[in-house]
């Protein structure tokens, strides 16, 4: 564990708390892509299978995994049942097959071992890299976002961004590199670049998140 990794994880944690706060206080999931949230549930369930196989890493690791699985399922519940009328499927139209299919194929080709657990782990890494796309697509389509939603996305993007110095640190401290995680992580972080540009130049200057027409 190094400071970048810790800050990254805390940022991930913060992003989920911001999202929950947004849904609870506005009593609405307007502007949030159900598809992206559903993909995160798939990502966490397929990646954290090791929880049930007895591979113990640390209390921190287990607690975080349980939190991510629990909170992502809870968010789906809020969106699908509790605040269902506030979700508009007509603007959440990204085809998730285009993300799940290629992720599965990549996982079958590029993995560390031909076992179910390792293939699902690789699948979860590839899927996470692109899971934000329905959300970004929705943002692009509507051209604007509530400020709180942009803070959620910024925290989520910061989490992935912070994993990069973490990997550089690990390379120098333990000589290890996880190529699957690194390549997928770079792609994932890259997807946020446009968003971050608008976030820094508009939202953090006190303006509304609006895309030029």
């Amino acid at each position: 564990m190094n400071v970048f990794r810790l800050l990254g994880d805390l940022s991930h944690l913060a992003s989920i708390l911001i999202l929950l706060h947004k849904i609870q206080t506005t009593r609405s999931c307007r502007g949030i892509s159900f598809k992206t949230q559903a993909l995160y549930v798939v990502v966490f369930l397929t990646r954290y299978l090791d929880l049930f196989l007895g591979d113990w890493v640390s209390l921190y690791n287990t607690a975080m995994k349980l939190f991510f699985i629990g909170s992502s399922c809870y968010i789906l519940y809020l969106m699908k049942l509790r605040f269902r009328p506030t979700h508009d499927p007509a603007i959440d139209t990204f085809r998730v097959e285009y993300l799940v299919g290629p992720s599965l194929i990549l996982a079958l080709i590029f993995n560390y071992k031909y076992t179910l657990v390792e293939i699902l782990w690789a699948f979860s890494i590839y899927l996470e890299a692109v899971a934000i796309m329905p959300q970004l697509f929705m943002l692009q389509r509507t051209g604007e976002a509530e400020t709180i939603t942009t803070h959620y996305l910024a925290a989520l993007g910061a989490y992935r961004g912070l994993y990069i110095p973490n990997w550089i640190y690990r390379y120098f401290s333990d000589g290890t590199v996880d190529p699957i995680a690194v390549i997928a992580g770079l792609v994932q972080t890259g997807l946020y670049l446009d968003f971050f540009y608008v976030y820094f130049t508009r939202v953090l200057q006190g303006q509304k998140f609006e895309l030029p027409a």
Binding site: V57, N61, Y112, N166, D174, G175, T176, V177, A181
Partner: peptide, 10 residues
């Protein structure tokens, strides 16, 4: 470099 053993990242 080596690939880390197991997956300790989240």
């Amino acid at each position: 470099f080596e690939v880390p053993e197991g997956h300790d990242e989240l």
